[in-house]
Design a protein around this nucleic acid. Sequence first.
DNA 1: CAGCTTAATGTAACCGGTTACATTTCATGA
DNA 2: TCATGAAATGTAACCGGTTACATTAAGCTG
Lengths: 332, 332
Amino acid sequence: MTNIRKVAELAGVSVATVSRTLKTPAIVSPGTRDRVLAAVEQAGYRPNLMAVQFRSQRTRNLVVLVPTIANTFFARVIGGIQEAAQRRGYGILLCNTLGDERTEQAYAGLVSTRQADGLIQLRAYDPFTASDGKARPPMVNACEVLDKSPCPTVKLDNRAAARVVTEHLLTLGHRRIGMIKGPLNSPLTRDRLLGFQDALATAGLMSDESLWCPGDFTPPSGHRAAGDLLSRADPPTAIFCENDEMAMGAMRRIKEAGLRVPEDISVAGFDDIAFASFCDPSLTTIAQPAENFGREAVSLLLDIIDGRDDAADEHRIMPFELVVRESTGPAV
Amino acid sequence: MTNIRKVAELAGVSVATVSRTLKTPAIVSPGTRDRVLAAVEQAGYRPNLMAVQFRSQRTRNLVVLVPTIANTFFARVIGGIQEAAQRRGYGILLCNTLGDERTEQAYAGLVSTRQADGLIQLRAYDPFTASDGKARPPMVNACEVLDKSPCPTVKLDNRAAARVVTEHLLTLGHRRIGMIKGPLNSPLTRDRLLGFQDALATAGLMSDESLWCPGDFTPPSGHRAAGDLLSRADPPTAIFCENDEMAMGAMRRIKEAGLRVPEDISVAGFDDIAFASFCDPSLTTIAQPAENFGREAVSLLLDIIDGRDDAADEHRIMPFELVVRESTGPAV
DNA sequence: CAGCTTAATGTAACCGGTTACATTTCATGA
DNA sequence: TCATGAAATGTAACCGGTTACATTAAGCTG
């Protein structure tokens, strides 16, 4: 393996001179510089960055924990993370955790053991355990955020957004509105449910828990939940789904039952994934700046890593927007 | 920072004993072992893996170059890569290249500079340049594969699969079949086009190049291309799209034109993404074992890294399956 | 209990860069 | 010519583990 000593020998100089030629050429005399560069070229030398990292105690890698990469929304967030990190000279160690805490802890260990400089968690769970040492490693929690987060966060005001969607449905005259929820233990699900109830309460309606169906953010779960709602004696005239994937599954199920969207039942989603405007009917949903979630998270994390500690307790709220398309219409 | 020397001091033993206690406890006497473990606990010690890697010259990281993470098919492939890598103790450095060769070369440099042990490229491009040294770093090319690859490959027989889809359309009586292509310079696009032509030729039909529209694998491009096809004097009775994302865009456009799928026009896709069975109508497409592409690629790459050189020139062909759903029907 | 084997532990070199500090070279001015 | 200082270059410690080899302690046999 060609290392710096080989190059030094080849150029007839010391290792220090080779290192200086590559890092601070200005302080090396032109003649020596040329000889060294020729030797580098001849030997095909590439510095071993593992050694550099080891010396500098910085890997310039960030760990990213994603509940599931198959979700189109997260894919966009990751895109934003990746772009921002790359621009600042950092690489991304991606982990598709599938919500498994053991896996998350294992990857968090990469930070504790210095294989990465910091961590971005996209799920509401703190992967650092006591065994990770006393000092908390740099971390940012984004998208799905812990209520009492031990680190900076980047989130949406899910409660407000859900209220806006629900108000939209109420304005259209819907009174019986079904709800397809996300995973039960998630603060995100809870907040969207709260916003949903807020809007109903403001409109003077009782919320009917029998119209809440569990789902897991995948199309099949939306399909199943919609089937459940349709089988009721008095089915809802509109369904609010906590994400677009489930909304697409639900629309499919409604059409299989011979009903039309939105003429018979309205459907609203959440996230505005790429397919939302291309499915049939196109989906009314909440648009989130997914890529910006990623960029903000990286920016906050690097602030911590670089010791700009004024960032240590920041909690950013990202904007959202109701996008009304074809899947919602007046109540029958 | 607590390092092995601090722990050794705390336990009243040498650094070697600490190292042995953690790596090969069997050769340490029980009494010493207990004292060392107590000291490790007390100090909150986690070994600095950067030092371990540096010593062993192995990072246990793999670089993965993805053309675009927003594509549902690639998301599944990455899931497979990630799972297989994790099981074998490797982490993934993910790069969303967007097809930019400079970015790809930069990430390939991580391997040349020992920040990663190998690379998986999901696009038909060799990111290693001459400057990466004479010995080719470990690499595997999967999904979209170079014709003359300098490394092992994992691919689908795209030509055969496209032929099967086309034969399906021909069997349904279609004679004018439109084609929405992927990016022009890709071997994948070329192979699917060849398979399409093969089937037409076998059926004794001339292929009509005016029915080939360019796309870029995104829903909007499928939408645009379908609009283009519909505006022809004599539009096709079926459209074969080179991936499902474009097929969904195309179906949307067809319905916007007041036509029905499949009654007026049939649409077929490629990849069988999660939404293919939940859109309306559900999509006839080619199912690929996406996760297995990832697993195979990891397996081949680790064979190379571990010096099982019998793998150095392997080219695996993955199976496919035509999934007939609602979007294709008899020609009118 | 000497003599020998085996188990347990310690010492220090090593991986490949970086950089503080030491040393050499060279130009300049007295 | 020599002293002086700046510029160029060299030497070696260091980062934190691992491990070959050396050393010491313990156990066993006759």
